[in-house]
């Protein structure tokens, strides 16, 4: 009932582990499949190793989660054995998330990562937490999106997915630019910029000061983005942002998503959140007599 085909690849269910959460090692990614997700996304990988920002890098409340990890990762050369490790432990599809500071470097990382057995590349052009180092995220500019999409596409041997930012007020235009430049799919959305202050010490809590907001507070923002993108492009969407329950995931699919990214839910409902969400989706479908997700995909669009 929940089997989902995404760019000719079959996922046992539409829930994929979102990039950045529990995705440092191949073993950790495989363990999340054991916990119920249909596929996984690695933490974003760059050309060189990065230790990331100082702590605190994350915090959460009942309503939102805030993080600025600073794209820590072991670099593409050390990421390859982790992806191989994932493959030795799991048969689920794996999306390799990549990022870089320039379009050319994006191409270089994409070429490197394709040497490992990945199913898709997700191009992270939308991290809100490394502005000091890399300037304004590429995800706010159609010109940058076109340039990066073209070069990554030309260097990749697997389909590519462009990950967009909810900070871009005209995200549907960004999705159109990606589609026109050859993107195979869109992930929407990354976290939205935010900040929290500890009033006793009178300081921002995160060492990076600003961070990316995820968790329940991001859901309606992400739904609006996915809804707008679905109405504007033909390529499939991984709907990500604030999904913590099966009902949230169903809403994401009704907005137009094919796959549903889940990350911060692990904070709210532990790592078993994936299996819980999948079970709740199945229960809702049974109650509403929905035979397949294709039946309800984009159902919230009236025309």
């Amino acid at each position: 009932m929940l089997h989902t085909t995404f760019l000719n690849k079959t996922f046992s269910n539409p829930i994929v582990l979102a990039s950045g959460i529990l995705g440092v090692t191949g073993a950790s990614l495989a363990h999340m499949v054991e916990n119920g997700c249909g596929g996984v996304t690695t933490k974003s990988i760059s050309l060189e190793p990065r230790p990331g920002h100082k702590n605190p890098t994350m915090m959460g409340t009942d309503d939102y989660f805030l993080n600025a990890v600073g794209l820590s990762n072991p670099g593409v050369a050390n990421a390859l054995p982790e992806i191989a490790k994932f493959h030795s432990l799991s048969t689920a599809p794996i999306i390799a998330s990549i990022f870089a500071g320039t379009a050319d470097e994006f191409g270089e990382v994409a070429e490197h990562i394709c040497a490992s057995p990945i199913d898709f590349i997700e191009v992270n052009i939308s991290c809100p937490n490394v502005g000091k180092e890399f300037g304004t995220p590429f995800a706010y500019s159609t010109t940058a999106i076109e340039a990066i999409t073209k070069i990554v596409k030309s260097k990749s041997t697997v389909p590519i997915i462009i990950k967009l930012s909810p900070n871009a007020w005209n995200i549907a235009e960004m999705a159109k630019a990606a589609e026109a430049a050859g993107a195979d799919a869109i992930t929407a959305v990354n976290t939205i910029s935010g900040l929290m202050i500890d009033i006793e010490s009178r300081r921002p809590i995160l060492a990076n000061k600003q961070g990316g907001v995820s968790g329940p507070a991001l859901l309606p923002i992400a739904l609006k983005c996915v809804y707008d993108i679905y109405a504007s492009v033909k390529i499939p969407i991984i709907g990500t942002g604030g999904v913590t329950t099966g009902r949230d995931a169903i809403a994401m699919i009704m907005a137009g998503a094919t796959l549903v990214g889940v990350g911060s839910a692990a904070y709210y409902r532990e790592k078993t959140c994936f299996a819980k969400i999948v079970a709740e989706m199945a229960e809702f479908m049974q109650t509403e007599n929905i035979k397949s997700l294709a039946e309800i995909r984009g159902a919230a669009h009236t025309n």
């Binding site: 959460i21 529990l22 995705g23 440092v24 090692t25 073993a27 950790s28 990614l29 495989a30 363990h31 999340m32 054991e34 933490k43 990331g52 702590n55 890098t57 994350m58 959460g60 990890v69 820590s72 490790k85 432990l89 911060s264 692990a266 904070y267 532990e270 790592k271």
Partner: peptide, 22 residues
């Protein structure tokens, strides 16, 4: 450990993938 509560995945051990903070 970066977070301490099972989200960052930095303390996951091979081959189990279990986080040592949880």
């Amino acid at each position: 450990m970066k977070c301490g509560f099972g989200i960052c995945g930095q303390c996951a051990v091979d081959d189990l993938g279990l986080c040592m903070c949880i």
